[in-house]
Design a protein around this nucleic acid. Structure first.
Lengths: 153, 153
DNA sequence: CAAAATTCATTCGTACGCAAATGATATCAA
DNA sequence: TTGATATCATTTGCGTACGAATGAATTTTG
């Protein structure tokens, strides 16, 4: 029985008892492994920065100065998580923090020259990371997969 | 320009500068968001257990007593991570730990009756979680997606 | 057999990820 | 204008996740 047939069986069959539930076939489980694999590939190419840290830098490079919260929304991190990421990038000298002049609640985040240099240097590596992550798939499969993954996320 | 065309553009084009790198289109980023979404759906259905904790219980239900390390391999967790998960399950009375009689390094993990009852009760909910996670996709798309995801993970 | 290498588990340190609570500021509405 | 709401950021607490170091027990090998 192929993996695909098992998946179809899972979708079709409605077994009330525990038999027929296979952890290995559940989206959540495979999604977690796929994510682990990607993080590992990332680390192999970019050792001194984590994917979330790179995401923050890349997004700042895109949009320029933004508030911490706004940045969090753009890269799908809640306020508490963003703070930690930004703190570490600041400690490395990659970002600068300033208070918003008008709205004193906002904390503006921007790239330092070092931060900008780092992102621009790393973007080609990030491309490689994407390619390597998708390397088990043919180009046609990549297109299909990305479309469906985006639809699901 | 459709999302799919952008993806193809990213795969095909080779731009040396930073223009053309779009964080939102990278597998890693979308994979992270898809995973976040799944965890959130999981929590909505099973509030008192995390996906890794449920994975451990479900796998123990499958294979019966195993060593902690072995279990970790089966559910894709390294030794340090498994330990934490098992400690919490033990504190809740869902698993029992015993030393292996012959090989005294091994720590055998097994379900308690409460643990077994919990998994069997939760498996139908886990099915629902899988279904809801995949709900943005048609049945045909689900089959395609699962095949490609498994290929990639 | 004895030394070297391996395996199993534990611990430590670092980094997400998120819920919930808190405090400061800003906006809205009566 | 003031009182209720909402927003931004911070902190705390818990739970993964993993590299690296450690120690105990087992296996391999010279």
């Amino acid at each position: 029985m192929s993996a695909e047939e098992n998946i179809l069986k899972l979708v079709d069959a409605e077994e009330p008892d525990g038999e027929g539930y296979r952890l290995q076939d559940q989206v959540g489980f495979i999604l977690r492994r796929a994510h682990q694999r990607h993080v590992s590939i990332f680390a192999a190419h970019i050792a001194d920065l984590t994917p979330p840290q790179f995401a923050a830098l890349a997004k700042l490079h895109d949009v320029g100065e933004t508030s911490q919260n706004q940045l969090g929304q753009l890269i799908a991190m809640d306020a508490a998580t963003v703070k930690g990421v930004i703190d570490r990038l600041k400690a490395r000298g990659f970002v600068e923090l300033t208070r918003h002049e008008v709205d004193k609640r906002r904390l503006l985040v921007s790239l330092t020259p070092e931060g900008r240099e780092a992102v621009e240097r790393l973007i080609p590596l990030a491309q490689k990371i994407t390619d390597e992550t998708l390397s088990p798939l043919s180009p046609k499969e990549v297109a299909t997969f990305m479309k469906l993954l985006a639809k699901m996320a």
